[in-house]
Design a protein around this nucleic acid. Structure first.
Lengths: 186, 186
DNA sequence: GTCTATATTCCGATAGAC
DNA sequence: GTCTATCGGAATATAGAC
């Protein structure tokens, strides 16, 4: 795989997660890379291709993380904390997550990008509901709500607290995420 | 106040909450109203003016709701449920809330719009932390976490579950919000 | 006071040079 | 295979007509 192509995807992802999909342009990427905007079109004929590829890479990254956690034999608490660490890192880098940055723009996305974003969100929610169920069965977690709904609530907390801390930067993200896990303790 | 001006603001708000700030244009509004796009510039010289005015109106609306609830003597549960009803309505109308739609675009907004969005978010979070504190003192709510953090977590859940249900529309919003309140019951 | 004709800039995208 | 010159159109915004 071409190095330029990789750089474009990395920059594109950063731009989506900082400025938003509809606010960034091929010019933003090309000027940073010192090439013309049309050069980007060689690697990604349309913005749709770029957006879709970026989401696909993120799905791959998430699935690799799951495999990694399984091979290491992580329990449900360790899995949840590993996932939350992604959000702490995003916060430190002043970026939103992919779901939280593309989600609000959903109605303006092309069909292929929509499809991948749906797939990514489903994979995350399914995994989260899964570890919530298993963790509760093993008495690691305690909660009364339906695991599927609880998964949406927890994921929503993570997604939007990145958005809120961007608006009000004095909010302490670490304490916020502790509030989320505190809630699950038996 | 001019009727055209009001229609522009209403349409503008709908567009922000469905397509996002950077995806909608003056053309979208003018074509709907059967006028030229430049006519919008008479009422709102720049997009910044329109965006800022829309946020200000939303702050006013929220503050009027607070006054209304106080004059009716709503307790903390009633206040929280009234607030959540706004989100159920938004979900039904397939719209995000203002904070959830402008938040991800924060870095691309003009200074005055940023300022108003910060103010709106602060007002909501302050009110929410307030009723959580008072409600817990009165034994209406039960939770162990710090009220300020809990306010961010609850608000985040509401904001982002609108975004997630847009991506995956089979998610049941009513059950999600019940998970949020369930969690506060003593 | 209200709106239109028009300017300007920037966007995503195509055709073709190297 | 990789990139540049350039297009057509859409975006925000100004100047001025009614």
């Amino acid at each position: 795989m071409s190095i330029t192509r990789e750089k474009i995807m990395e920059l594109g992802e950063t731009l989506i997660r900082t400025k938003g999909y509809n606010a960034f342009s091929y010019q933003d990427i090309s000027s940073e890379l010192g090439i013309k905007n049309a050069a980007i079109h060689y690697y990604f004929p349309s913005k749709e291709n770029l957006g879709t590829s970026i989401v696909r890479t993120n799905i791959q990254r998430f699935e690799e993380m799951l495999e990694n956690m399984h091979s290491r034999g992580f329990d449900e608490w360790q899995q949840l904390e590993t996932f939350i660490k992604i959000y702490i890192k995003s916060h430190r880098e002043q970026k939103l997550c992919i779901v939280g940055s593309l989600g609000p723009d959903f109605n303006t996305l092309n069909e292929t990008t929509k499809t991948e974003l749906v797939r990514m969100t489903e994979i995350i929610l399914k995994w989260l509901a899964d570890i919530l169920t298993k963790g509760r069965d093993k008495k690691l977690f305690f909660f009364k709500e339906d695991p599927q709904n609880k998964a949406v609530v927890i994921f929503s907390s993570l997604v939007a607290s990145l958005q809120l801390t961007r608006i009000i930067d004095r909010l302490d993200y670490k304490n916020i995420y502790q509030s989320i896990t505190e809630n699950l303790k038996p």
